[in-house]
């Protein structure tokens, strides 16, 4: 009865509804995009009415918001942070730099395509995306969660070797703890 498929479906719907309306964001301020978050959170745009709230540590966070360009040096830290987060977890790539490098397309130490290194659920394009765009990105993420399609963590675990190979390609000196240490 408990492990019945239909009852599991109902449980999934309820859980996804809760996940959808309670999004705790770890805003990893890698680049210039971090400046767009205070207006998103404060009284003009008020993301908290959608259940979007800041989280202080990766252990409590649901969404890793990568705001802007990622140098190879920050990518190392982002990977560490991402692996410390608890399942289910989502990644939101924020700004052009995470999509195709943006204005740092020919930089010698900035990665260009984020989803080769971490499973990205939603991209928000723009340079910079305005708070409206950020909110619409969160709305898109909520849609995906409700449909049960935001399973980046599962994808990451299943294809961990592929992601690791990509990560190790640009981080040659790999001294990192194990997954979810």
């Amino acid at each position: 009865m408990i492990n019945d498929k239909n009852s599991q479906k109902i449980v999934d719907i309820i859980q996804n509804w809760a996940r959808q309306h309670s999004i705790w964001v770890l805003a990893y301020g890698t680049g210039c995009g971090a400046i767009e978050l205070p207006p998103t959170m404060t009284s003009r745009y008020d993301a908290e009415r959608l259940g979007v709230r800041g989280a202080a540590t990766p252990r409590q966070a649901d969404v890793l918001l990568i705001t802007g360009y990622l140098t190879t040096k920050t990518l190392k830290r982002v990977i560490r942070v991402y692996e410390q987060m608890q399942d289910p977890k989502y990644v939101v790539g924020f700004g052009s730099c995470t999509i195709n490098g943006g204005m740092y397309y020919d930089s010698y130490n900035t990665i260009k395509v984020l989803d080769k290194y971490l499973p990205v659920d939603v991209y928000i394009n723009g340079c910079m995306p305005r708070p409206e765009a950020v909110l619409s990105g969160f709305a898109k993420l909520q849609e995906r969660i409700a449909e049960g399609r935001a399973e980046g963590a599962k994808k990451y675990k299943e294809n961990l070797e592929w992601y690791r190979a990509n990560q190790k390609k640009i981080i040659p000196n790999w001294v990192m703890p194990d997954y979810n240490w």
């Binding site: 705790w24 404060t42 009284s43």
Partner: peptide, 29 residues
Amino acid sequence: TARVQNRKGPPFYQNFIDAMKLASKRSAI
């Protein structure tokens, strides 16, 4: 807090949603 800061704020049952979400996390190290 939200109303004082001139925001709409989360619904009053937001804490239940948060608790439900935290309880339905798949892993806890």
